[in-house]
Design a protein around this nucleic acid. Structure first.
Lengths: 150, 150
DNA sequence: TGACTCATGTCAACATTCTGACATAGGTTA
DNA sequence: TAACCTATGTCAGAATGTTGACATGAGTCA
């Protein structure tokens, strides 16, 4: 250790703090998902699929913030393990609507509970008003950052 | 597109929103750093080093939320390009204190300005009170999530 | 109809990061 | 002193993710 315990003026950057919080959340999620034999990427995909059945590969990629190529290899694995199913042929266009299987749903259930517990721990003693404020602030970040994107 | 425009109850998860904001920030940073021939990882390392000269490889890894093996390959590249320097032998223990070179400092200057502009755009119309509130909330997230870590 | 644009799925090559492992330096404690 | 324990740097292998590229299906518009 070549430095004093903790940050000085680096902690004044909200961007750094945002990254720090996001990393801490991901680490905590990985910690509770590992005993269940699941990764954060797997969970994110299944959770998204549970809330919005029939999403395509590209939809899922956007929703989990990865490239559609990465999502494709993930879906192949999930398909091989029997967690999701995709039709052989696209009903319309090229998009293949993905569906959770019963096995996928049951595996997701325990993982979802674990993740929800982590999120609740993250929110800690934040009252409802503060949670609303947090949502307002974070939503503002996203819209401000993505406003210029065509 | 196999779904309606935007989220429904998925947007109620502060964890998802946190990840979304962090991803948007990283994408915006990549966009402004690419013209400068720099990646987010490079910038993070240099910025950390500018604010805390003499950090070791492991220190930098912790500060940028990557493994020390990854940081090592990054430092080798930065060293090769003449942005940082490390002594051949450790002055104490095994930790090698890293220093920015003049070239590294000058390259960092423009990148730092660009990133600061992105952060300011993210904060948008947030007044000082809201920024304080944001810092309070995000700091709370980090401490709540990492409280159980020995 | 035909040309154009856009989104999608998929292939290949590359880059990045991580995990596992090992030896070493320093501190702690019996 | 000697036996731990922790932290560090580094090597090797594997997993994961990305970019670039291509063909296909659907909609748009002259």
């Amino acid at each position: 250790m070549s430095q004093e315990p903790r940050g000085v003026e680096l902690g004044t950057s909200l961007g750094y703090l945002l990254k720090e919080a996001s990393s801490a959340l991901r680490a905590s999620m990985e910690a509770v998902l590992r005993p269940l034999g699941m990764t954060v990427t797997h969970y994110s995909c299944l959770e998204l699929l549970a809330q919005r059945p029939g999403l395509s590969n590209s939809d899922l990629a956007r929703g989990t913030f990865v490239s559609r190529q990465s999502m494709n290899v993930l879906l192949l694995a999930l398909e091989r393990d029997g967690f999701v199913t995709r039709p052989d042929k696209a009903p319309v266009g090229k998009a293949l609507p993905t569906q959770l299987t019963a096995l996928g749903r049951s595996r997701l259930a325990s993982a979802s509970a674990a993740v929800r517990a982590v999120e609740e721990r993250m929110l800690g003693a934040l009252d409802d008003a503060s949670r609303l404020e947090a949502r307002r602030i974070l939503s503002g970040f996203v819209t401000s950052l993505t406003s210029g994107d065509t």
